[in-house]
């Protein structure tokens, strides 16, 4: 009850506060720049260890090319996280879109210029449906999007049961294999365009401000006259389009529509987005961060394969990155409140 515990003179104030402040500053810096430093460190180490294989322009283009599909789908996911929601269906949407687009073009002989936009529209429709379920029917986003994704997997099975004539047109293959601009593979260009559009929407438009307001405090946003349901549905629709685009590019790359081909993008996208939220900002989701997150994963994988790490190491790396990413993001949010 009394102060017997404090007979020893306590450490004097300023020392403690200084130590606290330094520790907090360190943690804030770690959480803001840790990911960038990590990326730089990986690049430096890999370059020194393997200057002839890793540190080459073709390898860098290769990394970016591989990153672009993940970056596109992850950017879409970023939009849903900005409005405070989740989309677990994106991997399944991408797989489904990949099947559909090949079906439309190879089986139904639709022109590429019609088939591709049509599948993107279907992606938007799927996202809109998820958004509708989450906002209007008020189903928890995890459940709603998991449900939608699982249904799509089933529909994909049914769809792929039809014989798909071999012979995907070269035009379609060229979407991902072509190099429209000075030797840069198309997927990289498509990624840059998509990310730029989403960055502009989030940071330079009313709509983006509304999205951030909805994610920041949905009740304050609603009472300020923002139609929060529409804003959320837009985010889901964007995620759907991005997922469909990734699925289309993957099919173009593979030259066929394969069941469940893109399902694995879900985890990569989540890891990238959370790594990104701990990049430059204090736990907020943003497009540039997401790109950094994608690059970390891509560079890591590239290094693993160059140095011949056994295959079982890949899921370990992926899982560790996901946990690390969410951990960093949480840290960033906690220590931002200085």
């Amino acid at each position: 009850m009394n102060a017997t515990l404090t007979k020893e003179k306590a450490v004097t104030g300023p020392e403690i506060t200084d130590r606290h402040r330094r520790r907090r500053l360190f943690l804030v810096l770690l959480s803001r720049y840790g990911t960038l430093v990590g990326l730089a460190a990986m690049i430096v180490v890999f370059s020194i260890r393997s200057p002839t294989t890793f540190l080459t322009l073709p390898n860098f283009l290769n990394i970016l090319n591989q990153s672009s599909l993940t970056a596109i789908i992850a950017a879409g996911l970023t939009m849903t996280l900005v409005v405070g929601e989740f989309d677990l269906s994106i991997g399944y949407v991408a797989s489904f879109a990949g099947l559909l687009v090949v079906g439309f073009i190879a089986r139904d002989s639709l022109p590429v210029l019609i088939g591709v936009p049509l599948v993107l529209l279907i992606g938007a429709a799927i996202g809109t449906t998820s958004g509708f379920l989450v906002t209007k029917v008020r189903i928890n986003a995890v459940i709603a999007t998991l449900g939608v994704g699982t249904i799509l997997t089933g529909v994909g099975f049914a769809y792929s049961a039809f014989p798909i004539a071999a012979g995907v047109p070269a035009e379609f293959i060229q979407i991902s294999l072509g190099k429209l601009l000075v030797g840069i593979p198309n997927p990289i260009i498509i990624m840059i365009v998509v990310l730029a559009i989403l960055w502009i929407i989030l940071n330079r438009t009313d709509l983006g401000q509304k999205m951030q307001a909805v994610g920041g405090n949905i009740e304050a946003a609603r009472l300020s006259g923002i139609r929060v349901d529409r804003v959320k549905i837009f985010a889901f629709a964007t995620a759907g389009v991005c997922a469909a685009l990734t699925g289309i590019l993957l099919s173009s790359l593979l030259g066929s529509g394969t069941l469940a081909a893109a399902d694995g993008y879900l985890l990569d996208a989540f890891a990238a987005v959370f790594l990104g939220s701990a990049t430059l900002r204090d736990g907020e989701f943003h497009i540039v961060g997401t790109l950094v997150g994608v690059l970390i994963i891509a560079v890591g994988f590239n290094g693993l394969s160059i140095f011949g790490a056994p295959t079982f190491f890949q899921p370990i790396f992926k899982g560790a990155i996901l946990v690390l990413a969410v951990g960093l993001s949480t840290l960033a949010r906690r220590y931002a409140k200085a």
Partner: peptide, 29 residues
Amino acid sequence: KREGLLLAAAIRDNLILGLYNRVSRLGVL
């Protein structure tokens, strides 16, 4: 705190909440 403000956002983002058309043209800020 619960219904009025975006506590983690900047002052200017809070002032403009719901008034975006005051500072934007064709939806661009």
